[in-house]
Structures are given as structure tokens and as C-alpha cells.
Amino acid sequence: MDTMMIEVSDVTKSFGATRALDGVSFAVPRGTVLGLLGHNGAGKTTVVGILSTLSLPTSGEARVAGLDVTRNAEEVRRRIGLTGQYAAVDETLSGHANLVLIARLLGASRAQAAARAEELLELFSLTDAAPRKVKGYSGGMRRRLDLAAGLVGQPEVIFLDEPTTGLDPSARRDLWSVVKRLVHNGTTVLLTTQYLDEADFLADSITVLSSGRVIASGTAAELKDRVGHRSVSVTLRDAQDRPRAVRALEAAGLAPAHEQDGLVLTMPVKDSTDLAGVVRASDEAGVELAGLAFSEPSLDDVYMALNHSGAH
């Protein structure tokens, strides 16, 4: 499992005077998901373009499955699946015909191609829509077909470039569960996203890109630790209790904050054991609570914090 399926070392990419990537390095072990997180223009898509052999790095080295993307482009292409912003399907063909087309191009016989297409359509719950033209597909169906198209050749490495951008929440969830299943069988995935919850949910580790540089990397938990905004919020039963509750919590060494006339008091804490302190203080002050919640920092917080410290 120590085999690195993607290795990027000190890659730069310039478009004329603009530097889209400025010394990017990261590695993805086999069978894991790396979330490449960043806003528009951070360089995520440029990274995918280079790794999928669509464009050449200006300098530096990139390897996929141990193969150099510049020198062994042809071999790399045999091992990758590309989906997302870059790659699309043919709208004028049916879902089935699209997958057959790709399988045929990869060398499958007619029978093999049809079998593979049916297998994938089934996996992506597209069997009913298979004979219909892609033009009439919903956004979620189209993304699923797009993903299926990238999987026809059973690639070792998959690039998912912003796979859920523009999808409604339920379609996003559907796609996520498909990706989960995929990783389960050992496929290595590079996922680019602007959605922090997506990286949090799907990725084993996260690399944060900003203006063409890696500004942080680690697991979601590590990144959250670095920012450390854990908090507890309590919801009061009665707004009249608020001054009493605030006094009691402050006496317990906490710093509750609340909105004007709000029933909710929020305070930063070190870890979940502080929950007990909050409950005890409220209880002793005779304040009745309607709700209690502990929250981890969201990746939004992490991203904001890192971006502020990383942007010079």
C-alpha cells in the first residue's frame, strides 16, 4: 500500500506570463482518495490536465502509476480515467452507445463492449435511461454517465474534476456513494473540489491549493486541528435565563457569545470533554436547556484560515 500511484514533484505550469502552478508537490498512495481543494483559479484543473496528459508541465515531474506523464503519455493513458470539467460524453448518442463507443476504442470486441456498458449502467443506476439520448438526461444522470465513461477501461487511477459542481444535494449524495464504492475496490482517486464537505466526506487526505501553490496538506482531522475552532452551543428554553446562563458559563471559564435576543449561546472549547462542564454549569445555575451541540470546525473555517495565512 506504500506504492504511490500519483507523484507530483515541484511542477510548474506557465501560460504566457501567468503562472498557473508554482512548484506543486504531492503524492497519492494506491487505493486512496486525495482531495485537491481550492477555489476557482487555484490551479486544480491545471493539475488534472497535466496528470491526464492533456497538457505538459512547464517544469517539474509528474508520475502516474510510476510512469512519467511526459515521456510515457501513451502508457499513462491506458491506466487513467478522466471525468469532470474536462471530459464529456456525446450528447447525440444514447448512454449505452457512449459507453460502447469508449469500450470499442479501448479495444473491446462488440460483445465485450456491450457487456461492459450494461455492467456500468447497472452500477450507476442508469439501466432505464440507457437507450435514451444523453441530451435528455438530468444533471445528475449525466454526471453518473460521465463517471461511468471514465471507468470503462477499469483504470487504476481516476481523476474526478469537480464531479458535483452544479448538482442538487440529492444528486451529489448519489454521486458520492458511487465514488465511495469505487475506492473500495482499490482504485486511486484524485478529486478536485471547491466543496469542503465533499473533500471531508470522500478524501483520505486533502491538499489545499491556492494561487498555484500547496498551502496545506493532511487529513481532514489534521487540518481541522490546526485551526482548532471546536465549539459548543446550547439552546436555552427561555430567553430570560440568558444573563444567568452567561454568568454561570463565564464562571466555569468559558466564553459564551450570543446573537441579539438569541436563544443560542456558542463558546469555543478544547475538546468534547468540555461538554460536561457546560452542562454542569447550566445545571447548577438552574438554566433549562432545549438543546446542546458540539461542533467540529468546518473545512470552510480551515480553508479561510489557511488561505489568509498562505496568501502573500
Binding site: M1, P29, R30, G31, T32, V33, R78, R79, A103, R104, L105, L106, G107, A108, Q112, R116, V152, G153, Q154, P155, E156, K180, V183, H184, N185, G186, T187, D197, D200, F201, D204, T219, A220, A221, S233, A293, F294, S295, E296, S298
Partner: peptide
Amino acid sequence: MTTTTSPPALTKAPAHPPSPRFSGSGVLRQ
């Protein structure tokens, strides 16, 4: 986010990592 979502466990070392399924096609077929 008010709930604690721990990332679901993933199988890191698969028994059979995928390998290319088809052998490639010639220019004429393409």
C-alpha cells in the same frame, strides 16, 4: 456543521487492484 461526521473507514489495501481491462485498439478500428 453541528454534527460530528467521522470519515467512514476505507479499505486501503485491496485484494485485487484494478488493471487495464482492454488491450487497446489499432488505428483502423479507431
